[in-house]
Design a protein around this nucleic acid. Structure first.
Lengths: 250, 250
DNA sequence: CGCGGTTTCGATAACCTATGGAAAAGGATG
DNA sequence: CATCCTTTTCCATAGGTTATCGAAACCGCG
């Protein structure tokens, strides 16, 4: 067993590098995050992570039995937009404004995440047993989005559409656009996270609103929701234990 | 030098496997395509490609100096929607219908491609000198799409928007949605290529049309364009020469 | 001082892309 | 037919990757 988490262990063989980061596990996560942001997951090697964290390649495996487990540790607060959707799902405000707020928050989240959504999805798909929470979160976000859309169509704010399909299009747009923020294609202009988020929500709402003249009003109403909603969640999850007990299989 | 292409060479050391596919180069492309479709590019190894094509791993390198070059050979007819956009760019038909046709064709193309758009983009980005054509095609597609949108806004068919930004959203939606066709997320319904394509074009036009009541008419008008446009291009490109003369660098 | 627990290290297996040189054919030439 | 040249394939291997294993180095405690 290892120290629960960052509990700077006083025991153990000293590092060859001499460095003594306050917590090996969190050090690895921090350095890995920086590298993932800079180069992407697949292009980052365990050797680089180890070097930046001040240990040897094989030592990283004491804290994370597999490379994907580092990613998993990063996942913890992914799709935080889910909490926004949950909070707004039953709110009394206009459905259109709530939808705008959810889509905007989702796109912001996708842009701010250390990892490209698609790269994440690829890894998750190859390790379903470890990333089940990811897919659960996604399908719940989709369900809640569809539900808000349904409320909108029923109240007449939104034009009649299949809520499920419309939710897929709305989320898919956000995912497609985050890429243009993250990796601007040569020859095309680059977008900021905020431009992308507004573009995503604007486009979807312009497509769904029964009365498109209402868009500016919806937009500012959503901004109000966002402000009210920003109760700092502060999800400082406690990580624990090294070498994830090997689970069952591969 | 090797035979130009598929010219079934009568010379050369015989294969250990005894097989004699009609053309080594095309055999490799065919088998690689099948594997890429089934498992994706990154997950397919040169050994597998070689085995399926009937030769040894290192022999594949006689025909393709690098793994990405196989992909490059597949690229040839990628984004064929570009030809649709080119053809429709100056047509006299309503801009909205032309936009619909381009977006629909683009999504169909993305779904039919042997490789996920994002996987392709990832490889292209790591080998810019070999995949310059890919980025050129993309930016031209973007330019033409924006141009059609501008025509629409000027004629009043579409609501006033920044054509460049709207084109990014339109193409990004198609890219995001192709993923839902290609890799349905667990817990969500799967979509057919046609559903995805129509959803992409419908959503964008619903967002951009000045008079949304016109959508059904636009849709059927676009179908007409598509039918008229389908002059089979038959781009049977002639591949040539093995081991791409090593180009310059890496 | 010896002992168990903790953390790190070095060596190494297994797999991957890519290279270099030799081997095995056919065809041309004398 | 003996030889040389071209074409295609093969084997061996370098160098990079993820992951495993056993041993080494340090702590505190009896």
């Amino acid at each position: 067993m290892a120290s629960t988490d960052g509990a700077r262990a006083t025991a153990g063989r000293p590092r060859l590098s001499g460095s003594v980061g306050e917590s090996p596990r969190l050090d690895v996560i921090r350095e890995a995050t920086a590298l993932f942001v800079a180069k992407g997951y697949a292009e980052t090697t365990m050797s680089e992570i180890a070097r930046n964290a001040g240990l040897r390649q094989s030592s990283v495996y004491y804290w994370f039995a597999r490379k994907e487990h580092i990613l998993q540790a990063l996942l913890e607060d992914n799709r935080g937009s889910l909490s926004v959707a949950k909070a707004l799902h039953h709110a009394r405000d206009a459905a259109a404004a709530r939808l705008y707020a959810v889509l905007h928050a989702d796109a912001v989240q996708l842009c701010a995440s250390p990892l490209d959504f698609y790269e994440f999805e690829r890894v998750a798909r190859s390790q379903p047993q470890n990333f089940g929470a990811f897919f659960d979160d996604y399908s719940e976000l989709h369900r809640l989005t569809a539900s808000i859309i349904r409320q909108g169509t029923e109240s007449g704010e939104l034009r009649p559409v299949d809520p499920d399909v419309a939710a897929t299009a709305a989320l898919g747009l956000g995912e497609g656009l985050q890429r243009h923020f993250r990796q601007p294609l040569p020859g095309l202009r680059a977008y900021t996270a905020d431009e992308v988020s507004s573009l995503s929500a604007d486009t979807t709402l312009a497509s769904l609103l029964a009365d498109r003249e209402a868009l500016p009003a919806v937009r500012s109403q959503a901004a109000g929701l966002r402000a009210a909603e920003s109760t700092p969640v502060e999800n400082a999850r406690a990580e624990s234990a090294p070498a994830e007990s090997a689970s069952a299989e591969s």
